[in-house]
Each structure stands twice: as C-alpha cells, then as structure tokens.
Amino acid sequence: MSPSIELWPPMASEYAGRVDLLIASFGALVALLSAPVFILMAFFAVRYRRGRRADRSHREDRNVWVEVSWSLIPFVLVLGFFVWSTKMFLDQRSPPENALTLTVVAKQWMWKFQHPEGAREIDELHVPAGRPVRLTMTSQDVIHSLYVPALRIKQDVLPDTYSQLWFIADRPGVYALRCAEYCGTDHSEMIGRFIVQRPEDYARWLARSGTDEGLAERGGKLFVKLGCSGCHGPASPVRAPSLAGLYGSVVPLEGGRVVRADEQYLHDSIMLPNKDVAAGYKPIMPPFGNLIGEEEVSQLVAWIKSQADAGRAQP
C-alpha cells in the first residue's frame, strides 16, 4: 500500500518467514545447479573458440557414469527440498481445533467476511493477532482465490464447495488482500485489506461493529423462515431426520455408505439434498440451491453446528 518500492514483501506471520527461508534456500540451489552450466559454457566458448589453439585431444562423446551422476545428484538435492516444502504444506492444510472460524463468501467482485459473533464486513478482514484463524470459504459464482501475500498463502474459492485456509498472524498491521484467480472483468479490483489487530483491539472492534446477533442465531431464524423447521422440527408431520447433534456425527447413507457430517456435507444436504440421502428417508427434501445464497447457507450451517452438542435424537 505504500507508494515506495518494496523489494521484500511484508510479513505478517511466522510462517511467512519460513516460506521466505525456503525460497531463499531454493534460490541458492538454483544458483548452484545453473552455475556450472553458465560458467562452463562461457569458458568453453572462449577457450575452444574456432581458430584458437587449444588442447583438443582425448575428446569424449559419451560417458555413462558422468551422465548418470549429473542426473541423479541434482535430483537428490531437490528431493530434500521436496520433503521440506511438502511438510510445510501439509501442516498448512490442517488447522488446529481451537481456531477461530470465519466464513468467507466471494462473489464477483467482492469479499464478504462473517465473524462467528455476527460481525460482517466487505473487502476488509479483521483478525486478532497471535490466534489461529480458520477461514471457511465458498463462492457465489465463479472461482476466486483468496491471497494474502504477507501470509504467503492463498487458496482457491470454489462455488458450492467449502475450501479452507488457516494462519496465525502475529504482527499487527494492515496488509493487502487480493483475488488471485481470474474471475472476470474486475478481477484486478477484487482487492481488500487484511487487518491484524492486537486481541484487545480486535475485541473492541467486534464490539463496535454493532452485532446484535451471532451467525448461528441468524441461521436459527432462517431455519424457521425458510420452512426447514416444518420438516426437521420436533413435531413435524414429515419424516425427516432431526438435525440436533448431526454435525460431526457419522451418517449412514442410502446405499450403505457412511459419511462424516462436516460443513461440506451440511452445505450439500441443503443445496443438493439428493446427492447423499440419509438412510431410511425418502429423498423428498427440495433443493435450496436456487433459493438462497452462500451467506445464508453458511448461517444455516453455523446454526446446525451450534446444535451439535444437543445429542443426536432418534428420529
């Protein structure tokens, strides 16, 4: 955001520093592997220039051992980096349990963020420093990609699919947030600010954002408004499974398979109920895909999640 030229992108997390280290080390490897090529080519071009006298005896035109070694040695060197970077990557894929979960809905061409306490913001993302934050992201239309260069991470955001990203931002400040996947006309203007605050500032910000109700509460209202409770409610005449305690449980499906009821499952059960039908029920639930947007779905999902501890009632 500063007008001057920055040669080193800002860092907002400890992880970013580790990525920089990885890149710098790989850069050194690149130099190491290409140096022989550059140096020897220049040297030979001068030394064995046509017309120049030089020792050209004992010329070789093959040497299997040399060739095998210069295929294998660089390969093994790079394998070391493979292990290093893959490990970092896989860690980056598994968020800790206690992470603060925010939901992200992308649409052409804006970012919408919802905090569990109910604060909602557009094109700005406030997070507390030093605390693991998990983003559950989905898109309303095409594929986007949430990219925070200062964290050195990005993740594509797909329609009808939850993807996730997590990080611990530990340096308060304001950083850039960009859409990295081409998404149409204003792709390059689908940018925002990533604001890391000290926990107390974050709490103050949350309080100030005037949130009367949390995400789950909103979902609860929707649940009634959309008529879900008409089927899923306790005294409903329709035979539909109770949703209390559903989240996180193992659901037997029609056809003998079982799935774990995670966010994606809840999402799909609402948008495309016929994809996986719970065992013992008729596929009569109407698809809500055309009726509600991703934001509403994420609220419903939050509500169903909040009912997780209620203990799964028998239908």
Binding site: N274, K275, D276, V277
Partner: peptide
C-alpha cells in the same frame, strides 16, 4: 464417484 447414488 461423486454422485454414486444418482448415477446408479
């Protein structure tokens, strides 16, 4: 794979 039920 993704919609085995409907596919069948």
């Amino acid at each position: 794979l993704q919609h085995s039920h409907d596919y069948i």
